[in-house]
């Protein structure tokens, strides 16, 4: 019997570890995060928690262990608590599409961030999709690289090696295509190798080591990686191989502090930001909807390009980096 009471006691303790119960008049917003397995995801959640506080709403959230089925289940858990709105960062467009129907039935407005679902935003209770435009940011990065090569060599020429994100993801395809769109008009700027680093730092290092063996010093002008993690990995490989001519020739996408820092200290040439800062736009869209205002069904947030090649760029980048330091932001 004593053991059984111990069992009960432990369970009770566990249950009181977090005191439940919201009793405020503030709107209650639920957030379904697909996973917390990457700094980018953690930063996305932190950003939403931050803006919920700033904009005066109560927030409940959970995460779905990067699993479509679990996300469906956990969305149900959130909707059961009758929030005033649901923000979801879906695992996948089709698998999470039933959430739109759940929201329609429950009369709860839905905002998706980062990725959309199959249903058309602006129909039923699916009020808005807030994303970032990978094609556009990759195109801008490509243009920046072309101009940099022109400034450096006096003509539009150069060899680029590329390390891609996870094969087949929409982000990979868009970052691949957008970059090429910008370079199409310069026949002497060539992408001489492309390979997937799956988004991971270690893989970035491996692929870069391979490139460094294949292409001797002087044959690579720019290294383009689809994400900071791989960019930082590639930088390690470059330093380890002593290929100093490539220091300051890396361009990446994402915008974590570690990468911005390498821009400031000259190891990266540029970082295009794909920071997961959706909280402000998402919560403002919901508040507008709750106040009876019109909401844009699709909102594409702007991406910043961080570099030190102009005074303006350098100031902008330094200010942002200092803010990241002051507020201890990962992204």
């Amino acid at each position: 019997m004593r053991r059984i009471s111990a069992v009960l006691l432990v369970l009770l303790l566990v249950s009181f570890m977090s005191a439940a119960g919201f009793a405020s008049d503030r709107p209650l917003i639920a957030f379904s995060q697909v996973a917390m397995n990457h700094p980018w995801r953690i930063a996305m959640t932190n950003d939403i928690v931050y803006w919920a506080e700033v904009l005066g709403v109560d927030l409940i959230w959970n995460e779905a262990e990067a699993d479509a089925a679990i996300q469906l289940t956990k969305v149900r858990d959130l909707l059961l608590q009758e929030p005033d709105a649901l923000i979801m960062s879906p695992f996948q467009a089709t698998a999470l599409d039933p959430v739109k129907e759940m929201c329609d039935e429950a009369g709860i407005p839905l905002v998706t961030i980062d990725r959309s679902i199959d249903s058309e935003p602006g129909t039923g209770m699916y009020i808005s999709f807030i994303g970032k435009d990978n094609t556009k940011l990759a195109r801008e990065l490509g243009e920046f690289v072309a101009n940099y090569l022109y400034e450096t060599y006096g003509e539009y020429k150069g060899n680029i090696v590329e390390i891609q994100e996870a094969v087949g993801s929409s982000a990979t395809i868009e970052r691949y295509n957008g970059f090429r769109e910008a370079l199409e008009q310069y026949p002497d700027i060539q992408i001489i190798a492309t390979q997937s680093g799956h988004g991971y730092r270690v893989e970035g290092t491996k692929v870069m080591e391979n490139y460094l063996e294949r292409f001797p010093a002087g044959t690579i002008d720019i290294v383009y990686t689809h994400s900071d993690e791989m960019g930082l990995g590639a930088l390690q490989a470059i330093k380890a191989a002593g290929r100093t001519e490539l220091i300051g020739r890396l361009v990446t996408v994402d915008g974590q502090r570690a990468a911005i820092e390498t821009v400031v200290n000259g190891e990266h040439l540029a970082v295009s930001d794909y920071a997961p800062h959706f909280g402000e736009a998402a919560i403002k869209a919901i508040l507008a909807y709750l106040a009876g205002e019109e909401v844009e069904p699709v909102q594409m947030l702007d991406s910043n390009l961080y570099h030190m090649t102009t005074d303006e760029g350098a100031n902008f980048t330094r200010n942002y980096y200092n803010r990241m330091l002051a507020e201890d932001l990962f992204y």
Partner: peptide, 13 residues
């Protein structure tokens, strides 16, 4: 798991 979700316990815990 359901109870923890209803309580909003952090997924890390």
């Amino acid at each position: 798991k359901n109870i923890l979700n209803l309580m909003g316990v952090s997924p890390f815990v």
